[in-house]
């Protein structure tokens, strides 16, 4: 990350960049797109994505959205599949610490802007918070129809039959809808939207008190969900949507009903299940909750 920054910065110090890195005209363009996204929930607004001093896979769409909404008083959190401490998350957090001078945190409850890759925090978000998603492929119909002209027409005409056919073929083949990530949703009865590659476990949380913004850098799309927006996971009367539920409690904090990662603990096939949301898990342990292995595992 540091190398990326200095290369694209042409030797300039970070202090010479504008507040939150992007120039004002770029931020205005992104801000206008965000307002349209808010006014037409689930619709993908085109925007002119800028080069960012990090590779596309690192969430440049999310970074540009975060830069456009950020104020100097914000407290910023970044999670990568639930964890605050991956290289990706740490780099993006540092980027805004340096370019915007904002405070940073790993605590969901303290953060005002949370940029996320592929998870929604376990702790419910509140009014005044903004959740910014990094989106790799914003078009939920893309794997059914490669042409952008065609998918745009399908959204315009509400032609979502193909999507239902795909899900139904899933049922025919697997006895259930096997899609477990990026599970498509319908927003306010109108647009079919890709919630980004969150596990379908997180889909019920998409109706929330906070603002949700989605940024796809390479694909140059922004979309949004206002607070309390109606978000329905696509399903069938005889095969209703079911958010996957773990068969286990978290081995560290004992949480029932959080999203778990499986962790291999030794060469002998030992394994444990732990909350993917590291802040949630640590918060529970700090509060005295212990799971099956919570007392013995070194979790620092």
């Amino acid at each position: 990350m540091r190398d990326e920054l200095s290369r694209s910065g042409k030797g300039q110090a970070m202090e010479e960049y504008n507040f939150a890195y992007l120039d004002e005209q770029t931020k205005r363009m992104i801000r206008r797109a965000l307002l349209k996204g808010m006014a037409v929930p689930g619709y993908q607004v085109p925007f002119a994505s800028r080069e960012m001093p990090m590779p596309y896979g690192w969430g440049t769409g999310g970074v540009q959205v975060s830069a456009a909404v950020m104020v100097p008083e914000d407290c910023f959190k970044v999670i990568d599949q639930g964890a605050d401490d991956t290289t990706n998350a740490v780099s993006i957090r540092r980027f805004f610490e340096r370019t915007a001078g904002v405070a940073v945190t790993e605590r969901t409850g303290e953060a005002t802007v949370i940029q996320t890759r592929h998870r929604i925090p376990e702790q419910p978000l509140e009014e005044g918070q903004i959740l910014v998603y990094q989106v790799p492929i914003p078009e939920p119909l893309r794997f059914l129809e490669p042409s952008e002209v065609e998918t745009r027409k399908m959204h315009a005409l509400e032609e979502y039959g193909l999507m239902h056919v795909k899900l139904y073929e899933d049922i025919a083949r697997h006895g259930e809808i096997s899609t477990s990530y990026a599970y498509p949703v319908k927003v306010e009865g109108r647009y079919v939207m890709d919630p980004s590659p969150i596990p379908k476990f997180d889909n019920p949380k998409l109706r929330m008190a906070a603002i949700q913004l989605f940024g796809a850098g390479r694909e140059q799309r922004i979309y949004a969900l206002p607070p309390w927006c109606e978000v329905v996971s696509l399903d069938f009367e005889d095969y209703p949507f079911q958010a996957s539920r773990a068969d286990h409690d978290c081995d560290l904090c004992g949480a029932e009903g959080s999203y778990l990662d499986e962790v291999i603990t030794d060469d002998a096939g030992g394994r444990m299940f732990v909350c993917s949301d590291t802040d949630f898990c640590a918060g529970r342990r700090d509060a005295g909750h212990l799971g099956r292995l919570g007392a013995t595992e070194d979790v620092a």
């Binding site: 939150a20 801000r31 965000l34 104020v71 100097p72 005044g128 206002p226």
Partner: peptide, 19 residues
């Protein structure tokens, strides 16, 4: 101070459009 003042004003405009 356009960058910071615009940012705060936009945030209010975003919250307003969101609610």
């Amino acid at each position: 101070d356009a960058p910071r003042q615009s940012a705060r004003a936009f945030r209010a405009a975003l919250e307003a459009m969101a609610r």
